[in-house]
Amino acid sequence: MNHDAYPDNYIRGILNSVKSIAMVGASPVNVRPSYFAFKYLAQRGYDMIPINPGHVGKELLGKPFVASLSDLGRPVDMIDIFRNSSHIMPVIEEALTLDPLPKVIWMQLGARDDAAAAKAESVGIKVVMNRCPKIEYGRLSSEISWMGVNSRTLSSKRAPVPTQGMRLSLNRTSVGGGDTAASDRAAKNKSEQS
């Protein structure tokens, strides 16, 4: 997979197929990006599991915190990692000990570790880096264009009415829209420098 620019179909396929998501680094602090994403994805119907050893015994929006991936005790479709690039590898190594393996490993905005990604991909896991599933879901469902974001999709079909707790369609036939090549290039240059 080319991790500089993902085809919409790749992202759409992932968000349409996964049902359970374990979020590593989920924060109970309601201004942290992980909290935003956790809440949003839960509202959109994903089965969310917060992972954070510092909060075991507490709950995040009604879901009990789990200490680590090894403590999950159940299969998950996707692992969403809210950690810096330098902390990705150990999480991937732990994820690779799970049985069954997760189908997808997703690294948050700003996080990218190509070696860790290659390791996961070598055992058939799909990887997304430096993206936010909340933003991608909002983009492909066209909910996000309410914020003036370039969704990079076009459609002559009615958009869904976004209401709380509703799973939105990501499947409207849409052609590609405006490109954001300069931004993709800048992200690539940054990851090559670091």
């Binding site: 309601n30 949003y40 309410w146 974001v149 370039n150 969704s151 976004p162 954001t180 090549a181 300069a182």
Partner: peptide, 30 residues
Amino acid sequence: QAFGNIYTRIGNPTNAVLEERVAALEGGTA
């Protein structure tokens, strides 16, 4: 935390169409 409309000084659905259109024409993200 959520995408949506509050008050037209902050955002409006008609304006949002204009915003996305110009972002797309310029090759910007938003």
